[in-house]
């Protein structure tokens, strides 16, 4: 794999549905109902069911694995969960777009700056990934 400083990486688009969130809640052991039940979500002031922040970060990790060429190369990954990904009912769900730019390549590692959006909103704050080359 070759990643070069300044390189714009191919933008990845992922779809997330409420069924995915139900499956994720079970797999991750995070049963918070704001990720499954619209009434509960609205009762705490959210516009509707929202994805787990960690779900969105998992999508960012999928994009990074794709750019790195293989799983298991990520040595750092993180973000702030700044805005919710609202997931409407139905098969269309929500679309999360992950864009990336190689910030630097040094000592066999590439630092990737990410931009993760849902509609017009940046949903992750300061999302970064470092991969071993």
């Amino acid at each position: 794999m070759s990643l070069e400083a300044g390189e714009e990486l191919a933008t990845q688009t992922f779809r997330v549905t409420r069924a995915d969130l139900v499956a994720y809640a079970a797999a991750a052991g995070d049963p918070n109902p704001i990720h499954q039940d619209a009434d509960v979500a609205r009762s705490v002031g959210l516009p509707g069911v929202i994805a787990h922040g960690m779900y969105t970060l998992a999508l960012a990790a999928r994009a990074v694995d794709g750019w790195a060429g293989a799983p298991g190369r990520v040595v750092e990954l993180g973000a702030k969960f700044t805005k919710p990904v609202v997931v409407p009912a139905g098969e269309d769900g929500a679309e999360v777009v992950v864009a990336g730019t190689v910030k630097k390549v040094e000592d066999g590692r590439a630092t990737i700056g990410l931009t993760v959006t849902c509609g017009a909103d940046k949903v992750l704050g300061m999302p970064t990934a470092v991969v071993a080359l």
């Binding site: 995915d20 994720y24 079970a26 797999a27 991750a28 999508l59 990790a61 999928r62 694995d65 799983p71």
Partner: peptide
């Protein structure tokens, strides 16, 4: 557990491969 986590997040996964990068959240959580 790894298969279920990968399937829920749509992460491509084949037996013998590393778990998805965010999998450690399960134990951290």
């Amino acid at each position: 557990a790894v298969r279920a986590f990968a399937a829920a997040t749509g992460t491509p996964y084949a037996e013998g491969e590393p778990a998805p990068a965010t999998f450690p959240i399960v134990v951290a959580f």
